[in-house]
Design a protein around this nucleic acid. Structure first.
Lengths: 204, 204
DNA sequence: TGAAAACTATACTTACGGTCCAGTCAATGG
DNA sequence: CCATTGACTGGACCGTAAGTATAGTTTTCA
């Protein structure tokens, strides 16, 4: 229990994540990480069980942080309205604003990055990624069901598919944003999804 | 101009693409490709200007093939209806069916894969990727505008954002499909997008 | 048939990447 | 006050990858 350890470990993870999102996991060498993190190889191997161990730690950390963002915005939305549908719509507005406020191009989603290298990653990482996607799905299913209890749902799309669409438009939006170097595109996708939900729930 | 050349080159590209989609570009070694393609290093370097040259050829080929699929489905849809909105809706149905018919998990999108390694790729590749995304956008803008000329559009979402959403749900759907190992998820996202468009155009 | 294209085969250089290990040093606690 | 532990440093080791070189062989087309 030292103050030193946690800060080094966290610093390594933070730098590693940013490099991985730039270049991909395999292309990120341990030396890349060391150079940015002011630590040596030995220090790295003290904290992580090699590169596979780093991958696990990266995903774990990413999912926790992500959950914090979603939870924070959910709480804000719930404080602003009593109505479950309005809460959902406000949540999406807040999320779009959050994406829009980013100063640079969105760095990307670690789960998406790892998805296209998943043959290299051990089963533990793959399970964590699936868990992450599942938790986003369940979060949205919860919001959609609460809204659906108060408002009839049109459009004949299953709640799960509607929930997955949340993840899909964000991941797709990030991809567009990165390629066109326009952050705006993520927010626009989130707001388009919001417009869809408004129609599904017959709101105006 | 020999028959031999084209078949070897094509065989290399086909195998390279499938390995890249499994592991990512950087993690794909030239040897991996040689082993699957029954060719030697000399042969490979005869056809491509190293790995950077391979990347360019891979994207070029991918975009052409992709365009062929979209064009084919568009033509089918246009043969089945005169109405631009119905053509669009049929097109999306055909696309969802195409995804659903895949025997294995969808291999993934090369543009998405390269997006998360774009620091490694030269400007030429990045430009090609952007061109590809732009052409998908323009294809959908065309379809949406033709439908919009015949039917009023509700929902206050810009045509471009609606067009980008096509790419977003597909890329997002592929990501979900790969992680959950359920191809169904792609088709569902395409059909959810279709349901959205139906509402936007007030169809029933 | 002859020239060019499309290769095979092998050897080699260079560099880098992941891993492991032996040692250092400061703080902690008994 | 000394033994132990946590948090490292720095470098050796070994495999592997990209790319080069070169010499020779087969295939195809004109």
């Amino acid at each position: 229990m030292t103050g030193r350890s946690n800060s080094s470990r966290e610093r390594i993870l933070e730098n590693a994540e940013s490099i991985v999102l730039e270049k991909g996991f395999h292309a990120t060498s341990i030396k890349d990480i060391l150079d940015r993190s002011a630590i040596t190889k030995g220090g790295f191997f003290y904290h992580f069980d090699g590169k596979p161990g780093l991958a696990v730690a990266l995903v774990e950390r990413y999912l926790v942080q992500d959950d914090e963002v979603f939870s924070g915005l959910s709480e804000q939305a719930e404080a602003l309205s009593e109505d479950p549908l309005h809460q959902l719509l406000i949540f999406l507005n807040l999320l779009a604003e959050t994406f829009g406020r980013l100063p640079d191009t969105h760095p990307g989603c670690l789960v998406a990055s790892f998805t296209y290298e998943n043959q290299l990653l051990n089963e533990e990482v793959q399970q964590l990624m699936q868990q992450g996607l599942e938790s986003w799905r369940q979060m949205m299913i919860g919001k959609l069901e609460r809204a659906g209890a108060a408002y009839p749902m049109a459009g004949d799309v299953s709640t799960q598919t509607l929930a997955d669409m949340f993840t899909a438009v964000i991941e797709g939006g990030i991809l567009l944003a990165r390629n066109f170097d326009e952050n705006r595109l993520i927010s626009e996708q989130v707001l388009a999804y919001r417009a869809f939900l408004r129609m599904v729930f017959g709101a105006e």
